[in-house]
Structure formats: C-alpha cells, structure tokens
C-alpha cells in the first residue's frame, strides 16, 4: 500500500480554527481510496527534512503563537524552499498564508518575517475581516465554488509569481480590495479560508491528494470517485447561508 507522508507544522500552536479537520479529511479520503498515510507533527525546535514528506500543512494561530512560530520557521526556511522546488504539496491556512509569504507588518509597524515560498506580502489592516467567504476557485484549469469562513486582520497582496486560488463571490478575501483570495504557486496553496476548508470542499481536497500521490509515486493518479453527498449538502447550506445563489 502506498503511504502518503503528511507533515503537520506546529499543531500545538497553530490550531485555532478546527485545523485538524483538514488533516482528518486528507487522511480519510486517502484511506477510502486504499492509500495509507502518516502524520508527523513538527514543532518548534524540530528539524524539517524535505525528503520525508509529500504534503505539509500549517494552520491558523493566535498572534502571540504565530510570532513564536515565525521565528522558528526561519530556521526551516531553506528546507521548505527545497521541498517546494521538489513539488511537495503545501496547504497553509490563515496565519499560514501570511507565514508562507515574504512577511507580515503588524499594526505597530513591526516586521515578522515569512519564508517566501509564496510570492505575497501582508500587512495588518485597521479592522479584522470576518465573515462567510465564498470563492469561484480555479486549479489546473478546473473551476469550482469553495466555501468557508474568514477571520483575519492581515491584508495580503500577491506578487507576479503567485496566482490567486479564486475570485471572491462573497466576503473579503486576501485584502478586501482586489477580490482575490488565496495564492497558488507550483503545488503550494495558501488561503484565509477556514471552516475548516477541506471537509465542505472535497474538490479542493482531492486536488491536493492527487498532487501528493503524484509527488510520492511520480505518477498522477486517477482517484476513485467517492460519495460526496454529505459534503455537497453541507457546501450548499453554507453557500446559501452566506447569501450566494448557486
């Protein structure tokens, strides 16, 4: 059985928006298709070895914890860059997308460094952008609606090397101005969307899985279709409650 190796970065510090739901979805959707998986938590002080993993997850945390994590992440920067270049899959959510970029300038002008695997930069806005978030997302030419929730003070703007994950149908997205949300660069995805993002958006989950399987096996798999009826119902309800017509 092929084993997909998942690295969960800073699960103790960065976990405030139900992040482990994303991990559960990745694991279960692999398992239901006959793949096994391993989850390795990597915390402050631990080494990150790029060749050990196929998918790397980083979630959202409180400002205080994000600061602690940001400095530790600097020590892993070279390894993360090498992994990204090698096609490892990244899903970095909320605080994660900010850490994936060049850095974060907080409300007092202090600069918190990022690792720069996504071409974007973030600075704090006056108010928090909070509420339902609905996107028309696009990956590899496929489009799909993606729904969740956002709650962030950061305003993120993409550079030329990153493309948005989607355009905002409802909510604020990266910065509340340009209607973009998230960022994609090679197989690294950053997003402000939690809820968590993957349970209600199996389309996105399956994209990540197939990339991770390709990273492991060298071959893009044809994924066995799963019964997504509960996922689709939950997505429909969330989109409707966000006030977007399907």
């Amino acid at each position: 059985m092929t084993e997909i190796r998942i690295c969960h970065l800073y699960p103790k510090e960065m976990n405030i928006y139900g992040d482990r739901g994303n991990i559960a979805v990745i694991q279960k959707r692999l398992e239901w298709r006959g793949y096994s998986s391993s989850i390795t938590p990597i915390s402050t002080g631990d080494d990150f070895t790029p060749t050990n993993f196929d998918l790397c997850y980083l979630g959202g945390g409180q400002d205080r914890d994000q600061m602690i994590v940001a400095y530790d992440l600097q020590k892993k920067s070279a390894a993360l860059h090498s992994a990204a270049k090698d096609g490892m899959v990244f899903l970095w959510v909320c605080g994660g997308i900010q850490l994936a970029g060049a850095g974060y300038t907080d409300s007092e002008g202090r600069r918190i460094p990022g690792v720069g695997i996504l071409d974007l930069d973030t600075s704090a806005g006056k108010n928090r952008l909070i509420g339902d978030l609905v996107l028309e997302a696009e990956l590899n030419g496929d489009t799909c609606k993606v729904v969740g929730y956002e709650n962030h003070a950061g305003r993120t703007f993409l550079g030329p090397d990153a493309t948005p994950l989607g355009s905002v149908l409802k909510g604020h997205g990266n910065n509340g101005i340009d209607r973009t949300e998230g960022a994609v660069q090679r197989r690294a995805i950053g997003t402000y969307m939690h809820g968590p993002i993957l349970p209600k958006n199996p389309w996105l989950a399956d994209k990540l899985l197939s990339w991770a399987i390709e990273h492991k096996t060298g071959k893009m798999p044809t994924l066995t279709p799963l019964d997504n009826s509960l996922e689709n119902l939950a997505q429909q309800v969330a989109i409707t409650r966000a006030g977007v017509k399907r």
Binding site: V25, G195, P199, K200, L230, L233, A234, V237, A238, R241
Partner: peptide, 12 residues
C-alpha cells in the same frame, strides 16, 4: 442550521 457540518464532522 448547520446540521450537515456536524454530519461531516462525524463522517470524517
């Protein structure tokens, strides 16, 4: 209102 989110929580 969000019963299906809970259903997914148990499903997964």
């Amino acid at each position: 209102d969000r019963a299906y989110d809970l259903a997914l929580r148990f499903h997964y």
